[in-house]
Simulated assay, not measured.
Amino acid sequence: MLEKTATRFSHVKPGDTPWRSDGLRDFFQYRDLGVAEATHGKVIAHLVRANQAPEQGTGWHRHEAQFQIVLMLKGWARFMYEDQETLVEAGDCVHQRPGIRHYLFDYSADMEYLEIVSPADFGTVDVDAVCAIPPPTPWR
């Protein structure tokens, strides 16, 4: 018999889980990929896509997580990681080290990325501004 801490096989197809607007940010939509349930909360994997044009972005914050990557699937997003502006485009993968202060401040209308974080119930903590943020690009 498998212990509760063991992970389970999971296979989620596009129609199996809906896009939801009740995630961390109301200007994004999220689609769960079943990994948190399969790993008993050790890891979460979800898709994130633009739902509204960027106005103020995410604000400065950090995550209480042991591991986090973002794999940009479509479009682009501009982040500040500490005081470094970073353009993340389709095909790019970013490993966000634990505790890094960051701000997603601009993104394309077609932005969609895969985010994988451990643990699944990671925390988000607002932090003081590190530096000034460039203005977002208006959607046409």
Rank of each mutant, 00 (worst) to 15 (best):
P98H: 14
Y103F: 15
P98L: 15
D128G: 09
P98M: 09
Y113Q: 04
V125N: 10
F67E: 11
Q68Y: 08
Q84L: 02
L114C: 11
F79T: 03
Y113K: 03
E85M: 04
Y113N: 01
Q68L: 14
I116P: 06
D121M: 13
D110F: 03
A129H: 02
G91S: 00
Q68W: 10
E85R: 07
A129E: 09
E89I: 03
A77G: 12
Y103N: 13
E82C: 05
S118N: 04
D121P: 01
Y107I: 00
G75H: 07
E82G: 01
R101V: 06
G123L: 12
H95Q: 04
D110C: 00
L71H: 11
G75P: 02
G91R: 03
Y103K: 07
Y107M: 10
D121F: 13
G99D: 09
P98R: 14
H95N: 08
R62E: 14
A90V: 01
A90C: 00
D83M: 05
M80G: 02
V88K: 00
C93G: 03
V94C: 08
A120L: 06
A120R: 05
A77M: 15
Q68I: 11
A132Y: 02
W60G: 01
P119H: 15
H95F: 13
V125K: 08
Q66E: 15
P119Y: 14
G91K: 01
M72P: 00
L114R: 12
W60E: 05
S108Q: 07
R97L: 12
K74D: 12
I100P: 01
L73E: 01
Q96R: 03
R78Y: 06
D83N: 11
L87P: 02
H95P: 02
I116S: 07
D126V: 05
H95Y: 14
H63D: 12
V94K: 04
Q66A: 15
T86R: 13
I69Q: 09
A109S: 13
D126F: 10
H61Q: 10
L114K: 11
A90Q: 04
R62G: 07
W76E: 11
M80W: 03
V127M: 06
F122D: 13
G123R: 12
W60P: 00
